[in-house]
């Protein structure tokens, strides 16, 4: 068994080295590494995104193995797991941000509503307007607060005229719970805000293009507890209108904000279930070890 795995890996490495970024699927024999079956119910009644058998390779190294999961409409789903388990990688598959990383290949099926997002007919620009993203470290553009929020609507031509734009910027800031704090200084640079405010500005910026799904990659890991609490409150409110996928290292945070939780381990999706069930009655030994703090 082990020899075939090593051989297969060597095959894959060679194919990737020889061909660079693109490898035709047919030319490579992809063999399962020690892949673990997912415990729990992966489907939901009203899915927003459907992911089936998603694999990700970085120059031949498999970062994600056969991940299948549904993301329900208007739910907050949390991805947890130790560092390097593939949860951020999977998140970045959902809006194809992995496209910007050279030598990263995604194999599998991810559907947003009925559209396969890796299909050739899908414009990645349109996709990212529908699936927004908030990053680990607040990254406002070096522009004014107003321009930060207006950036997305402007590039997508969403508004006609200044009045409409003003309206949209204010509404987005309001929904991100930031308007009161910045109302009188919209022309100041976004970078002049505090860390927590910057992260809410980034959320407002994402909301402004009216996405259907918002991906959050450890959005509170660079923030203090008070700013974290504000963002968690905001996530709960945003659930009414958006589907939210959040990657977090804080199990308390996952328990507080999410309805369902998925536990990743070394590229496998180990267990998925209702958040309450995962934290009180995990079915898989690895999940139990992680949430009880035995490792991770």
């Amino acid at each position: 068994m082990s020899t075939t795995i090593i051989e297969a890996k060597a095959n894959l490495d060679n194919a990737l080295n020889a061909e660079g970024r693109q490898i035709p699927l047919s030319s490579v024999q992809i063999t399962d590494y020690d892949h673990r079956q997912t415990v729990g119910k992966i489907t939901v009644d009203n899915p927003k995104m459907i992911c089936r058998d998603v694999n990700v390779y970085y120059t031949g190294k498999q970062a994600l193995k056969h991940v299948s999961i549904d993301i329900g409409a208007n739910e907050v789903i949390a991805f947890i797991g130790p560092s390097g388990c593939g949860k951020s990688t999977f998140l970045r598959c959902l809006n194809r941000m992995n496209d910007t990383i050279p030598f990263c290949q995604v194999i599998g099926e991810i559907k947003l509503d009925q559209d396969d997002i890796y299909d050739k007919s899908i414009d990645v620009v349109q996709l990212r307007a529908r699936v927004g993203m908030v990053f680990q470290k607040p990254n406002p553009f070096p522009k004014s607060i107003y321009e930060n929020v207006a950036y997305g609507p402007r590039i997508h031509g969403m508004v006609d005229g200044k009045a409409e734009m003003d309206e949209l910027v204010r509404a987005s800031l309001e929904r991100a719970g930031l308007l009161k704090e910045v109302e009188n200084r919209l022309s100041e640079p976004g970078t002049s805000l505090s860390g927590g405010q910057q992260q809410r500005l980034c959320i407002a910026r994402a909301i402004a293009v009216n996405p259907e799904v918002i991906l959050m990659d450890e959005p509170c890991s660079a923030l203090d507890p008070i700013a974290t609490a504000k963002i968690e409150e905001l996530i709960d409110e945003l659930r009414e209108n958006y589907t939210i996928v959040i990657v977090t290292h804080s199990m308390q945070q996952a328990a507080r904000v999410s309805q369902r939780t998925a536990y990743f381990h070394l590229g496998d999706l180990i267990e998925i279930g209702e958040t309450d069930q995962i934290f009180t009655n995990p079915k898989h030994k690895l999940t139990e070890d992680y949430i009880t703090g035995r490792f991770g």
């Binding site: 910007t100 307007a129 990053f135 470290k137 553009f141 950036y151 997305g152 590039i155 293009v209």
Partner: peptide, 27 residues
């Protein structure tokens, strides 16, 4: 210019040229 600026722009659905013109060049 930090990669996070590019990521932020791409994640909002900006194309490469929009990112260059509106984020990278000003920065």
């Amino acid at each position: 210019v930090p990669q996070s600026m590019r990521d932020g722009s791409y994640a909002l659905g900006a194309t490469k040229s929009e990112t260059i013109k509106r984020v990278l060049l000003p920065a």
